[in-house]
Amino acid sequence: MNSFNIYLPVAGIEFNAILLVSIGFCVGVLSGFFGVGGGWIVTPALNIFGFHMAFAIGTDLSNIFGQTIGAVRKHHKMGNIDWKLGLISIFTSVVGLEIGSDVIIALEKAGDVGIIVRWCYMLLLWGLGSYMLHDYFGSRQKASAPSIGEGDKRTGKVSPGISERLHRITIPPLVSFPASGIEGVSVWIILGIFLFTGFMSGFLGVGGGFIIMPALVYLIGLPTAVAVGTSLVTVLFSGAYGCLSYALKGRVEVVAAIIMLIGASIGAQVGSTAVKYIKGYGIRLLFSVMIVLAGFSVALEQAYKITNHHVFQTYAGVVLIGTAISMSVIIIGKLIADARKERGRR
């Protein structure tokens, strides 16, 4: 494996090229499939393997930018992008992000804010994961009762719960999103949702794809595949901005980013293609399992901060990498199985 070691001139370290391509591939699959950037996997992974945190973030953002271009193109081809909603999300999220980061700066003056942020992060990941799992098993129960299941299939409605209740609030002006099949929703609701997702991104210091995707499904009522594609539009723009900004500050290791992009671009195309074959609820189930496991990783990181035992930090990274690898394998396995099944039907 040492023969694959390459020298990274900006970071000033040697790094295994195969490892970079593998990390990129796994995160690319997850990005294309779930509509997330995957920074919460790549940044700690690069940091564990020896990158300074600032280089890890900058290199990761550059990789996110590169890998998302192809994924967005593919989702657009499949009709999975609501551009109008995506653009509103970009501009509103930026405002929320600024508010979130201002809150963090204000809290920092009072002391170590990291512990509070990690508790919030854990609560968000586990809360969201549990809700999605509950929703998934609820939908399966409904589907097993024939009359209700047929009804759902006919209307094609996604989540009758929170999103429908929000749609009933008709404070003008109302706005429609034909690409998502949404008519007459208050613009204030949409702005409020994206302000909240942006705020959470700024507060937690994450890209926000994993918050936006479920918000689009459960709060706005988008079909899962459209939520994945539209979320990627936001990820693409934040990746582009982050790439330029971190490169200007000299915090992008360009050689590592290019090598990682080789794996990530391939992975993102595979992940995006899998969306064609796997039904919406299947995507949601895998997503919920992934964020619950990511929550465990944050819990281990929290344990490290409290006890100062390095073993917790190490295993936090291992849980993240393990989750990324396992999820990628499951997605590719499902893609192959379902594609073969479809070919057999033809």
Binding site: S62, G66, T68, K74, A247, S265
Partner: peptide, 21 residues
Amino acid sequence: YAAMVTIVMAVLGTVLAFLTD
């Protein structure tokens, strides 16, 4: 340097996605 990084990532991302496709 920043312009080079951004352009390289965009071009490479597009080309690799096209080839994978």
